[in-house]
Structures are given as C-alpha cells and as structure tokens.
Design a binder for these strands. Structure first.
Length: 464
RNA sequence: GUCCCGUUCGUCUAGAGGCCUAGGACACCAGCCUUUCACGUUGGCAGCACGGGUUCGAAUCCCGUACGGGACGCCA
C-alpha cells in the first residue's frame, strides 16, 4: 500500500517553525517510502481562520520546498461528509443524542473540580430517551466511549501508549448547530484521504485515544501514528514570539536559506550518527521515523546560523547576487552604474564571510555604490598621514597595473617589495579607503571588482 | 486535580548491558594559518536528574522521587 502522509495546519496564524518541522517530517517520511504527502487546511474555526493565513502557510511551505503532492483539502468544505458519518454512527447505535445544555456541562465540570475528580461528562443521555420537553430542542451527537478495557496505540515515536477506557469521555462529534468537531472531522478526513501515517506534534498524543473511538466505531482501519515532541524556546518554555523568530517567513526575511532551515529542523530531535550537514536528498535516504527523539528540543539560533553559513558558501553565486541586490534595493541603497556587476564579481569572496543573506547584503553595500564609501570609525583611524601618503603613491602606480584578478595580488606584493614595506601596511589603509571598513574580501579582489577608475577615485579620496 | 509523555556537556545529539577514560556538532577559550574578516585546522572547557534494585558488569533493564512538557471544551 502506498504511504500517504499529511500536514494539517489550522489557518489561524502564520506557519511557525514547529509546524514547519512537522511538515518536513511528513514530507521526508513520504519521500523515503516513495509515497505521497498531502496538505489539509483545518479551517473549521470560521472565527479565527483567515485567507491571509492560508496564503502565508502555502507561501511558507513552498519556500521550504514542502508543497503538497495534491491540491490542499479544505476541511470546512467537507462538513456534509462529517455530518453523514456522525449520523451513520447514530444509526448504528454507536453514538447518541445529548440535550445537556452548556450550563449543565459547566456545572458538571465545576463539581468535578471541587471534588477532585477529572472533569467529565456524566453520560446522562447515553441510555435515555428524549421526553416531550426535548422536542424541537437542539442536541449534540456524542460517541459512545468504550466503558471497559483499555485502548492501546502503537506509536512509531513514543512506543506503545495505553490508557484505561474508563478515562475516556463520550466526546461530542457533532455540535448542536450541526457542525462537526475537530476530533471527529480529522478522523473522517484522514480516512477519506487514505492517510496511512499520521505524523504530528505530541500535543495530539492523548487526543489519539479519542480519535480511535471513531475509527473503531466505524470499523475503519486505524492509521499508524507518530507523535513528535514540540520545539521549545532557548529557555525551555513553549516557543513564542519573545524567543525571536518563530514564523517561517521571519527566517526568510532574516536571510536564512530554506535548505539550511530544513537541515537544522531535521537535526532538531533527529540524528544519524555524527552527521550534521544533511542536504535534502541525503535526508530522504536516511530518514527513519524511529530515530526521532522523544524529548522536546530547544531552538538554538546560533547553530542554525552556523549551518546557514555552510549552505551560503555552497550556494550559487548568481542566485545569491540576485537576492542580495533585491535586499539592497529594499534598503534603498543607491546602485552605481556597475554596482550590480561588482557585487556579482565579489560574491565568491563575499559569501565566505557571511552567515546570513542579511549579513551578506550589509557586506555588499560598499561595492554596489559609486564614490567613496561611508567610513567606519575604525577604518578612519587607519588613514594616518603616513597611510595617506602611501595611498597617494599607490594610486599613481596603480594606473599601470594589470587589471586581472589573478595578477593584482602579485602586483601588490611586488609593489610592497619594491617599496620595502609589508603587505599589511598597505592592505589595511587600502581596505579602509575602498570599503570604508576594516574587514572586507581580499583586497586584490576588491580592487579588481571595483575597476581601475572607481578604485583610483576612492584611493585618492582616502588619501586626501 | 486526573491521565499521557519525557529527562546524556549551556544547546542539538551519538549511545539498543562490557567497544564509554561517554563520541560528534554549535557556542565559548587558547594556538596555528593569514593582507583584514571569515573559512580551515590543533587543543581545551563541559554531561549520563536523583535514589533504590537486577547483573560478574548499567548511560543503557526494572521501580520510585524530583523536575519539565502535553491533554482533559458544543477550540483546533
């Protein structure tokens, strides 16, 4: 049987990093087994669901390379089917009508809390026929939970999880307004979508017992379950905005590459020996749900950043240049005539020195603009009278230098030898004049990319 | 409160009874490389939550405690 997995977010907000990891594991599991990976938008909460959130989720998944293999299923559109199954259960005697009012239920819960019992519906309508006063009154449909025995769920991550059936409630599957509840809709949808493996966050672990009631009552095969631990913030608490970036789109904006985010997320709670750098295709072959850890993991931005640097160094120079130019434009930096070309020329050197696209963008500003760069204080300090004199001298000699990337380095060394100075003595003031900073790509690369004319202009400006 | 799940360096993890003097990665510190910064490289710091068992032998198995997380809605 073909493996089919699904990612089922509810569109009540942006896709956060925890959801992204759930999607990734579903995707990897499906790919590893040559199966299909689907998306279901759980939009049954009309109050909180928005089209904007749906678009953001789709956008985030596409960015991560986790778009579904089939068009997304919208849960709200399947209401009739959910109702049909609820009524079938009723007809089979596996569910019943309940006329208990919200007030009655609240009272039940409060009394239970006061007596130290778990809050539970008392099943008052399970075996009771409606009287005349119920006529025309709205009712909910509740499923009959098994009274004895226990429910065992073999979980692919957590192992065998079991609970005494006495702990289970007669949960509502159809509300009194005729709409299905989440726990019921999920089961019907997963069954209809022929999902073979339900991989989700372990906040759903105990819900699984309740969902099993529906599978069992309908006589449907239960899918395999795998509940993965949640991601926490650096302080161990549930991940939230105060921990920094949580939305997938935030990571994109901050200059992380989707491959790096994917690799990081994969290693969070999953490992394969000592391997750390695991590109997507390698992940597909290695991934085994059984290797997923059982404990919650904390988000570590430093490690993500490090990994991002590794992917950045391997990234395509043209693609990086495009991205950086876009970011520069967004920063409203003024492009020089040859600005874009210079950024591209320096990209191989630039990307070795950055860990994120934002950092890369900052490092490219001096190259894209025309004219003397904005001087950092530390760079300014390098331009002593002595250094300025040297720059002026160098500018004159530079007019006859060969302007090739491969020749400039040697030419500079020769120049220093003739003048009897160390390379560092000329390189640093030169770096300051050309880039306005004390750090930059190798100075010969900067000279080469800037071109003789622009370089001369900046050196003379620095010398005066 | 009841039920479910978890606990190896600061963080992510390797580890399926002897291979463990507990390995790797990030972070941190020091050295090397070097025209700056990075990269790279060498070394260092640092951990089996605690208490009982079982066993010739336990990070690994069992029980308990502590701590953490999750679920208990006519929310998803």
């Amino acid at each position: 049987m073909t493996v089919r997995t699904r990612f089922a977010p509810s569109p009540t907000g942006y896709l956060h990093i925890g959801g992204a990891r759930t999607a990734l594991f579903n995707w990897l599991f499906a790919r590893h087994h040559g199966g299909e990976y689907l998306l279901r938008i759980e939009d049954t909460d009309r109050e909180r669901s928005t089209q904007e959130a749906v678009d953001q989720i789709l956008d985030s998944l596409a960015w991560l390379g986790l778009s579904p293999d089939e068009p997304p299923v919208f849960q709200a559109q399947r209401e009739a089917r959910h109702r049909e199954i609820a009524e079938a259960l009723l007809a089979m005697g596996k569910a019943y009508r309940c006329w208990a009012t919200p007030e009655e239920l609240t009272e039940m819960r409060e009394r239970a809390a006061a007596e130290g019992r778990p809050p539970r519906y008392d099943r008052r309508w399970r075996d009771r026929e409606p009287g005349p006063e119920q006529a025309g009154k709205p009712f909910a449909i509740r499923i009959k939970a098994p009274l004895e025995g226990e429910t065992i769920v073999p979980d692919l991550v957590q192992g065998e999880v079991r609970v005494a059936n006495g702990e289970l409630d007669d949960m509502i599957i159809l509300r009194s307004d005729g709409t299905p509840t989440y726990l019921h809709a999920v089961v019907v949808d997963d069954h209809d979508m022929r999902i073979t493996h339900v991989i989700r966050g372990d906040d759903h672990l105990t819900n699984t017992f309740r969902q099993c009631m529906v599978y069992d009552a309908m006589g449907w095969h239960r899918p395999h379950f795998a509940h993965m631990p949640l991601i926490h913030g650096a302080d161990g608490a549930k991940l939230s905005k105060r921990h920094g970036a949580v939305s997938v789109l935030d990571f994109r904006e901050q200059g992380f590459l989707p491959d790096a985010v994917g690799n990081y997320l994969l290693r969070l709670g999953w490992g394969h020996g000592d391997e750390e750098f695991i590109p997507r295709d390698r992940a597909v072959t290695l991934f085994d749900i059984k290797d997923v850890g059982r404990a919650a993991a904390r988000m570590d931005y430093a490690k993500l950043t490090h990994l991002n640097g590794q992917y950045l160094r391997l990234a395509d120079d043209d693609a990086l240049t495009r991205d950086v130019l876009e970011r520069l434009a967004k920063r409203t930096v003024l492009f020089g005539t040859d600005g874009a070309k210079r950024v591209r020329m320096l990209m191989p050197a630039l990307k070795e020195r950055a860990k994120t696209l934002e950092e890369l963008t900052g490092a490219a500003v001096f190259a894209v603009q025309d004219g003397p760069p904005v001087m950092e204080a530390k760079a300014e300090a390098l331009l002593t009278p002595e250094a300025k004199a040297r720059l002026a001298d160098l500018a004159a000699f530079l007019q006859t230098a060969p302007w090739e990337r491969s020749d400039l380095d040697q030419w500079l060394r020769d120049y220093c030898e003739v003048k009897g100075i160390k390379l560092g003595q000329v390189a640093q003031p030169l770096r300051a004049a050309l880039s306005g900073s004390t750090t930059s790509p190798p100075i010969d690369a900067v000279l080469w990319a800037l071109g003789r004319e622009e370089a001369t202009l900046r050196i003379l400006a620095g010398a005066s």
